[in-house]
C-alpha cells in the first residue's frame, strides 16, 4: 500500500517538475526532466532482467546504443538525402520516430537474443563478464564503423519527428519521453505479474523448483533478457534524439554501469525504483556537477555508501523493505 502511494507520487512528481520549470521559464530543467524520464525508462528495462530475473547484465549499453544508433542513422540519412540501404532493395530513410523505434527495438532484440543465447549458458560471475565482453565487442564495432562516424559518432542536426508533435519543443519532447516511460512501466508491470513473469522470478529465486514444475529456466531467462534489452533500446533512441547525438559513448561499459547504478540507487526489483534512481542521479549530476568537475568522485562515494549501508536504495527508505526478497 505504502509502495503504491510512493509509486504514484514518483510518477506524478516528474511531470510536475517539468510543468513548473516550463512555467518559470527554466527550459533547461525541462530537458533534465526528459533526461530523467529516459534514463528511468532504461532502468525500468534493465530492472526486468536484473530485478525480476536476477540476471546481472553489465552489457545493456549495447542495447541502449543500438537504439541510439537507429535514431542517429535515420537522421543521418534523412539529412543527407540518401537511402539507408541502396542494394538489393532500396530502403529510404525516415525521420518518423515510431518507425525508427521499431527498427531500433527489433535490432536490439536480435542482438539481445544472440548475446543472451551464449551468455545465459553460464551464470553468476561468468554471466557478468560475458555480457560486459559482448557489449565491448559492440562498442568496438561502433568505433570502427567509419560510415557512421566511427569514434566521433553521428550528430543529429534535426530531431526525428513524431506524428502530431513538435519534437523540437522541449515540453512536447518531455511529454513524449514521459509517455514512453509510462508505457515501459506498464509493460514491465504486466510482464512481471503474468505467468511468464512469475516463472522469470522463480528462475531467480529457485531454479531447481522452476525446472521441477516443468518449466525450463533457460528459455524463460532468454525471453526476459531480450524483452529487457528491447525496452532499453527504446530509451537509447530517445536519448540520442534528446542529445542530438549517437555515438560509441552510448555503447561504452560506463553507460551499462550507470544504468545499473540508477536501478540500485532507486532500489532493485521495485517497479518505480528506476524512476526514483534516475531523478536522484540527474539531480546529483546537475547539483554536484555545477559545484565541481569532480562530481563523479561524490557519485562514487554515495554509491559505495548505498551498497554497503543502505541496501534497498531510495525505495527502501521511502516505502520500506520489499515484500519479496
Amino acid at each position: 500500500m505504502r509502495e503504491a502511494l510512493v509509486n504514484f507520487a514518483l510518477i506524478a512528481l516528474l511531470p510536475l517538475v517539468a510543468l513548473g520549470a516550463q512555467a518559470a521559464g527554466e527550459t533547461y530543467v525541462v530537458t533534465l526532466a526528459a533526461k530523467a524520464a529516459i534514463l528511468a525508462l532504461a532502468g525500468v528495462g534493465l530492472n526486468l532482467a536484473l530485478g525480476v530475473g536476477g540476471m546481472v547484465s553489465l552489457g545493456h549499453a549495447a542495447f541502449f546504443g543500438i537504439g541510439g544508433y537507429a535514431a542517429g542513422i535515420a537522421a543521418h540519412h534523412v539529412f543527407a538525402g540518401t537511402p539507408v540501404i541502396g542494394w538489393p532493395v532500396t530502403l529510404e530513410a525516415t525521420d518518423q520516430m515510431p518507425l525508427i523505434w521499431l527498427a531500433g527495438v527489433l535490432a536490439a532484440g536480435l542482438a539481445a537474443a544472440a548475446i543472451g543465447a551464449v551468455s545465459l549458458r553460464t551464470q553468476g560471475v561468468h554471466f557478468i563478464m560475458i555480457t560486459l565482453a559482448f557489449a565491448q565487442m559492440v562498442y568496438y564495432l561502433g568505433v570502427s564503423w567509419k560510415t557512421y562516424g566511427g569514434e566521433d559518432g553521428l550528430p543529429i542536426y534535426l530531431r526525428n519527428q513524431f506524428p502530431g508533435l513538435d519534437t523540437g519543443d522541449g515540453m512536447q519532447f518531455f511529454a513524449l519521453a514521459y509517455a514512453c516511460l509510462l508505457a515501459g512501466v506498464a509493460l514491465v508491470w504486466q510482464v512481471a505479474r503474468s505467468r511468464f513473469g512469475q516463472a522469470l522470478a522463480m528462475a531467480r529465486m529457485n531454479e531447481a523448483r522452476l525446472a521441477a514444475s516443468g518449466i525450463s529456466p533457460y528459455p524463460v531467462r532468454l525471453v526476459g533478457f531480450v524483452l529487457s534489452g528491447m525496452v532499453v533500446a527504446l530509451a537509447g533512441a530517445l536519448f540520442a534524439d534528446l542529445n542530438g547525438f549517437a555515438g560509441p559513448s552510448m555503447l561504452s561499459w560506463h553507460r551499462s554501469g550507470e544504468i545499473m547504478v540508477l536501478v540500485i540507487l532507486g532500489g532493485v526489483g521495485r517497479l518505480c525504483g528506476p524512476l526514483a534512481g534516475a531523478m536522484l542521479f540527474v539531480a546529483l549530476e546537475t547539483l554536484l556537477g555545477g559545484l565541481t568537475d569532480r562530481w563523479q568522485l561524490f557519485l562514487g562515494l554515495v554509491l559505495l555508501g548505498v551498497v554497503l549501508f543502505a541496501r534497498g536504495g531510495l525505495m527502501g527508505m521511502l516505502a520500506g523493505r520489499a515484500r519479496h526478497g
Partner: peptide, 9 residues
Amino acid sequence: VLATFALIL
C-alpha cells in the same frame, strides 16, 4: 559489481 564500480569512479 556496484561497489567496485563505485571504486572505479
